[in-house]
């Protein structure tokens, strides 16, 4: 058991932590907000507000 074995376990552990963080946050968000609100993003928002496309 040398330093590299420990690093291997650390890598497994960190991967799990990042993965679990994402999954927990995902579940939390999906249960807190309605799908309608989460999926309300529409394309072309900026275009309509800041760019005038007619010359």
């Amino acid at each position: 058991m040398d330093i590299w074995n420990i690093i291997e376990y650390a890598a497994w552990g960190l991967s799990a932590i990042f993965g679990l963080y994402i999954i927990f946050d995902w579940i939390k968000v999906d249960s807190t907000y309605s799908d309608e609100e989460l999926m309300s993003s529409r394309e072309g928002e900026l275009e309509a507000m800041t760019e005038d496309h007619t010359l």
Binding site: E37, L38, S40, S41, R42, E43, G44, E45, E47, A48, M49
Partner: peptide, 17 residues
């Protein structure tokens, strides 16, 4: 294009972008 009701036509619908 600034309609608040039309879907996919501008800023109206977006709550979270």
């Amino acid at each position: 294009i600034t309609s608040k009701t039309m879907d996919g036509m501008g800023p109206g619908g977006t709550k979270i972008g």
